[in-house]
Design a protein around this nucleic acid. Structure first.
Ligand code: FES
Ligand code: FES
Lengths: 149, 149
DNA sequence: CACATAAAGCATATAAATATCCTTTAATCC
DNA sequence: GGATTAAAGGATATTTATATGCTTTATGTG
């Protein structure tokens, strides 16, 4: 019922980059992982992967770091999921049958499809830009709420 | 975006039991795993777990096997998921934030919640009996479609 | 050029999910 | 009671996801 952590981390990192990074002001792994409460090295791995796949660019050295390679409005959520997890999850049968098919459906098919495909549609339409817009207006957050003890 | 394989196997095994097993005619692991294309030993483990949790009963020896401990109409999909996976998945934030909350939402919250909660509602309402009914009428299947090469 | 910085690359570690194997126990049949 | 059947139980194996550490390479600074 969810994305892998890798996808989640990737999406949140990309949102952070969209908000904070420009080609002039790059952002490093340390900052991202600290601000978003993500495991640092693992986040690094994921971002390096996104660089290889072309979604993100990076530069080494002082003032180096990561930044978006394309406008945030051109990167959909599904783009990210596909790069990271490989987008097969949205085709699978909800009961794990070898094939999800309208002509040989499992007893959950109709109900499951509605939600699976609905979520896929949202993921296909929404871009990183759409997401961060809500953060910009203060209607949403990408940083964890800190528990006050 | 999906259940664990363990939950999937559990649900399909329970459906098979609902269809094929009675207290008089029990069904063994071998039959279940062969008919449903499931790994035999793993399926055994899962069923033993369901016995411990009270959803299924079993008897050893010749003519032994598994059968439902309660009427199929009293076992919801969510009951099974909770026993097997522990039902936390339906409370998690879609972007993996430490807490899913209406007052500190992630940018995906509204969209994600609709589907997550919708699916949870279906899982809470549908019982094993509802599922197998569709199989009985030939509208749905629990066995894999065999590929003809 | 020497040095500091930060990502890239790669190797490895840990944990969880998935899967198999083997021994033990209970039931049935003769 | 002895043989057979089938689940229970527990140990172990494999795979995948998640996470960390260390070395190398590129970049900028003085
Ligand atoms: S066949 Fe199971 S979800 Fe489509
Ligand atoms: S806060 Fe992310 S889904 Fe609710």
């Amino acid at each position: 019922m969810m994305l892998s952590k890798t996808s989640e981390y990737a999406l949140r990192s990309l949102m952070y980059l969209a908000l904070q990074a420009t080609k002039e002001h790059k952002v490093g792994i340390k900052e991202i992982s600290q601000e978003l409460d993500l495991p640092m090295h693992f986040t690094g791995k994921i971002l390096q992967d996104l660089v290889r796949k072309g979604l993100v660019a990076s530069l080494k050295g002082p003032n180096g770091g990561f930044f978006l390679n394309h406008p945030a409005s051109t990167i959909t959520i599904m783009d990210v999921i596909k790069v990271v997890d490989g987008g097969e999850a949205f085709k699978r049968c909800g009961l794990g049958m070898n094939k999800c098919s309208d002509t040989h459906p499992c007893p959950l098919h109709e109900d499951f499809k509605v939600f699976r495909d609905g979520l896929a549609r949202v993921f296909n339409q929404k871009t990183i830009h759409d997401l961060v817009q809500e953060v910009g207006t203060g209607h949403a957050f990408i940083k964890n709420l800190v528990e006050v003890s």
